[in-house]
Computed example of a mutant assay.
Amino acid sequence: MSRDNMDNLWNEVIKVLQVVKSKITSEIDLLWTHYNSVEELRSEINRIDYLLKDKNEKGLELLGYLFAPTGTFQEISMQNEWIEEYINLSSEFDTLYKILKT
């Protein structure tokens, strides 16, 4: 795969993360997550975003953990009524993850 194609895939992962980040408002319910505050979760997302922009696989792994079944993003999406969007985003992330990890 060409470098441009790989760069585009990383950018697509970042776009998926940005959509999720836009859902993390001060009013969200974090009850079923291990985060104590919205600020703590936003900080984690920002750290992952930074790693992804550097094409660091650790960022990809951390994001995979957040997208995992019963993971943070799924729990937040169910509690905050955007589960269908989560499913689409998760599916897109899974596809990108598989390509980038090969």
Results as ranks from 00 to 15, higher is better:
M1V: 10
M1N: 11
S2V: 11
N5G: 10
D7V: 07
D7E: 12
N8E: 13
L9W: 05
W10Q: 03
N11D: 07
N11G: 06
E12R: 04
V13Q: 01
V13G: 00
I14G: 00
I14L: 02
K15M: 09
V16M: 00
Q18S: 14
Q18R: 12
S22M: 08
S22H: 09
S22E: 15
K23M: 02
I24V: 13
I24M: 14
I24Q: 12
T25A: 05
I28S: 05
D29P: 03
D29K: 06
L30M: 12
L30S: 09
W32H: 12
T33F: 03
H34E: 14
N36Y: 10
N36T: 09
S37P: 08
V38K: 12
E40N: 07
L41S: 03
L41R: 05
R42W: 12
R42L: 15
S43G: 13
S43C: 11
I48Y: 00
I48T: 00
D49N: 09
D49H: 06
L51C: 04
D54E: 15
D54F: 09
K58W: 07
E61F: 12
E61T: 13
A68P: 02
S77H: 05
S77A: 13
M78A: 11
M78S: 09
Q79K: 11
E84D: 13
I87C: 06
S91L: 08
E92R: 10
E92G: 03
E92V: 07
F93W: 04
F93N: 00
F93R: 02
L96M: 06
Y97A: 03
I99L: 07
L100R: 06
